[in-house]
Amino acid sequence: MSTSVPFRVHIAASVIIAAALPFLVPSTVLATEILIFGMAVIGCNLLLGYTGLLSFGQALFFGAGAYIASLTAIHWEIGLIPVLLLTILAGAILAAIVGYLAIRRQGIYFVMLTLAFGQLGYYIAFLAEEITGGEDGLLDVPRPPLELPLLPDMTFANDASFYGLTAVIFVLCFLMMQRLVDSPLGSVLKAIRQNEKRAEAIGYQVRLYKIAVFAFSGAITALAGGLYAMMLNFAPLSNIDIETSEQILFMAVLGGLGSLYGSVIGAGVFLVASDFFSELWPRWMLLLGLFLVVVMMFAPGGLWHGLVVGFERLRGRHKTSTEENDHG
């Protein structure tokens, strides 16, 4: 479905999202958070929506990214780009290792293993107080300056400039990931999701592809975690706990799997709703749970799929939507 969309449309769409978002939501900080979590949800979507791997350990990559970015930014004065590149690299390596171990088992065991590795990471972070700050988290995380040749150094001290930075990174990541899922590699991933045995029989090294998609997922999720720590100036332990994994997964399902736009919508709707309801009622997660049950029982395609179907109905060509109905 998305392969038929020209790449320049994706360029325009992602730039419009990044440019319009601050005007659509109550605060710049919330807009920044949406783009950051949008990237983490894209990481989750690559695994679940495109490859059919339900990872319950995404917080491990998110939290690890937050710690790596914070530690390198605190201890080494190497500027923004090296910090983010190190974060991406660390996330990719960590995710490749976790993926390598977890895909030894399939189905439900795979899910349990990703959860267990996530928990292992959480307890290690909790224990390694001297490095991660343990329960208190890492305080005073700086936002390193961007040093580009021929240009003055850029700092991102205020919310608006940090949003600008996040928006540029978001657009670049979004387009790269869109390229990835539209590439031949992306087609192999979809083949694995639809029928793993057949993909194997055709001659694809399914295991290598799965490890590769874990690495991509870990890279973008860690990058999101690193940016989140810079946004908060703080890397809390909760970044790496099971609840963060759940929330990322929840946003992915809410928006709809198998579309990167769905991921951004999922992150946006979730964060705006939680911003709104958590002010009103401390037990608002109860509504979230009800909502999750209702969405999964009655609209398992998520919000994006609902939008697509609704739009096509409006244009009177809803018959074609059955072709796309292959993720479920």
């Binding site: 679940l48 339900l54 189905g107 439900i108 899910v111 759940e246 997964l249 929840f250 399902v253 037990r283 997660m285 109860l286 979230l288 749970g289 009800l290 909502f291 999750l292 049950v293 999964m296 029982m297 398992p300 479920g328």
Partner: peptide
Amino acid sequence: DHAVQILVTIGLMLILRESILL
């Protein structure tokens, strides 16, 4: 699908946990 079961039971988990807190 297992994925659907997992997500619905996570929803159930949230409902029950928040009810306990209530």
